[in-house]
C-alpha cells in the first residue's frame, strides 16, 4: 500500500435518498496541505468535508482520516473528532457561554486540561484572533466576523491536526470577511492541514496548494490555484469561474 495522506477518500459515494450527493470521490490531502474546495451550490462540497469528521456518514468507499478508517468499529469517532476542528458557516457558538467559555469548554471537558491552564491558553488564542478585549462577551454581543474568529479560536483550543472550514465567510457582511480570512491565512501559515470550502479566490491564491472544483457530487477538476484560475480545463469550471469572478 502506498503512503496515505492525512485525509484519504477512495471511491467514496453518498446518497441523500435517491440523490447521489458524492460520486466516486477519490482525494488525498497531505499533512500541512491547504486544499480549497469550490463549486456551485448543491455540488456536494459541504457534504464532502462534513464526512471527514463524521457529521455525515458515507455509503460506500473508504475514508481514512489521520490513519483511522471511518466506519471501522475500531475507530473511536469521538476521539478522532478532537483532532479535527470544524468551522461552520453559521458559527454555531454556544450562545449561553462567553467567548472564553466557548474556547475552553472542550479543552476542559474533553482534554481534561485544568481550568486555569485552559483559560490562560484560551485568552492567548482569543488575543491571537484579535479579540483580547472580547473575552467575556457573549456571542450575541459580537459581530459576525468576531463570532467566526471566536469559532476558529474554539477549534484551535483543541490543538487539532486538521481544520475544516465550511463556507466560513458566506454568512458575513463584506467588510468582515477579510478579518476572518486573515486569521485563516495565519493558521494556514503555521502549517495546519486544512480543507476550506469557499469562493474566496484571493484566499485560495494566497495559501492553497490545491483547488478542487466539484459539480453534481463529483470532483471535476483539481490543480494548483494558478493552473485552475488562469487555465481551467473543463467547461463547467470555466462557466463557474466566469460567474464568480465577473463581479
Amino acid at each position: 500500500m502506498t503512503k496515505t495522506g492525512m485525509i484519504e477518500f477512495r471511491g467514496v459515494n453518498k446518497w441523500f435518498g435517491t440523490l447521489n450527493v458524492l460520486r466516486d470521490i477519490t482525494l488525498s490531502v497531505e499533512p500541512r496541505e491547504v486544499v480549497v474546495v469550490c463549486g456551485p451550490s448543491g455540488s456536494g462540497k459541504s457534504t464532502l468535508i462534513r464526512c471527514i469528521n463524521g457529521l455525515e456518514t458515507i455509503r460506500d468507499g473508504d475514508l481514512t482520516v489521520d490513519g483511522q478508517r471511518l466506519g471501522d468499529p475500531a475507530t473511536n469517532m469521538t476521539r478522532l473528532r478532537t483532532e479535527i476542528g470544524f468551522v461552520f458557516q453559521s458559527f454555531n457558538l454556544y450562545p449561553h457561554k462567553t467567548a472564553l467559555e466557548n474556547v475552553t469548554l472542550a479543552p476542559i471537558h474533553v482534554r481534561k486540561i485544568p481550568r486555569a491552564e485552559a483559560e490562560e491558553a484560551g485568552r492567548e488564542l482569543l488575543a491571537k484572533v484579535g479579540l483580547a478585549d472580547k473575552v467575556n462577551a457573549y456571542p450575541a454581543q459580537l459581530s459576525g466576523g468576531q463570532q467566526q474568529r471566536v469559532a476558529i479560536a474554539r477549534c484551535l483550543g483543541m490543538r487539532p491536526k486538521i481544520m475544516l472550514f465550511d463556507e466560513p465567510t458566506s454568512a458575513l457582511d463584506p467588510e468582515m470577511i477579510s478579518e476572518v480570512l486573515d486569521v485563516m491565512v495565519a493558521v494556514a501559515e503555521e502549517g495546519m492541514t486544512m480543507m476550506v470550502v469557499t469562493h474566496e479566490m484571493g484566499f485560495a491564491r494566497k495559501v492553497a496548494q490545491r483547488v478542487v472544483f466539484m459539480d453534481a457530487g463529483a470532483i471535476v477538476e483539481s490543480g494548483t490555484p494558478d493552473e485552475f484560475f488562469s487555465n481551467p480545463k473543463t467547461d463547467r469550471s470555466r462557466a463557474f469561474l466566469s460567474k464568480i469572478l465577473r463581479h
Binding site: 476521539r79 473528532r81 478532537t82 476542528g85 461552520f88 454555531n92 454556544y94 469548554l105 477549534c155
Partner: peptide
C-alpha cells in the same frame, strides 16, 4: 448546529 458544534469538538 449547536449539537453539531459540540459533536465536532469531541464532547
Amino acid at each position: 448546529g449547536q449539537v453539531e458544534a459540540a459533536l465536532a469538538s469531541g464532547l
